[in-house]
């Protein structure tokens, strides 16, 4: 059997989200955390680590990019700059 693959996420500082940094192979979750520590945090890069079985991640298909993300392209009224506020009103 091949050794399972895990995706590694690192939180560099409190206040930041965990960020994907790469993957490791490990037989179980404990060993995956240990391997992730050795491979991705040798210079104080992390305050916290997540490892997630790679097969547990569900990804959007790049082929669906247009149908998923394009519709928001035309909805410019979702942005503050769409609206006019006279200069005299000042910052809003």
């Amino acid at each position: 059997m091949n050794t399972p693959l895990w995706e590694v996420f690192v939180r560099a500082r409190n206040g930041l989200a965990h960020k994907h940094v790469g993957s490791v192979h490990a037989a179980d979750a404990t060993m995956a955390l240990q391997a992730a520590r050795d491979v991705y945090t040798r210079r104080g890069e992390a305050l916290s680590l997540w490892v997630v079985p790679s097969h547990a991640i569900v990804a959007s298909d790049p082929a669906d990019r247009e149908s998923l993300f394009e519709p928001t392209g035309s909805k410019i009224y979702r942005h503050p700059t769409f609206y006019e506020v006279p200069d005299e009103v000042g910052h809003m």
Binding site: L5, G22, V24, H25, V39, R42
Partner: peptide, 26 residues
């Protein structure tokens, strides 16, 4: 020791990158 350990790490980052193209580590 730290340098040689880094090189091992480099190998692992790169194997992971290669695996995203559909080959296995094995």
């Amino acid at each position: 020791l730290a340098k040689v350990q880094d090189e091992g790490g480099h190998g692992l980052y790169l194997y992971s990158a290669a695996e995203t193209l559909g080959v296995t580590r094995e």
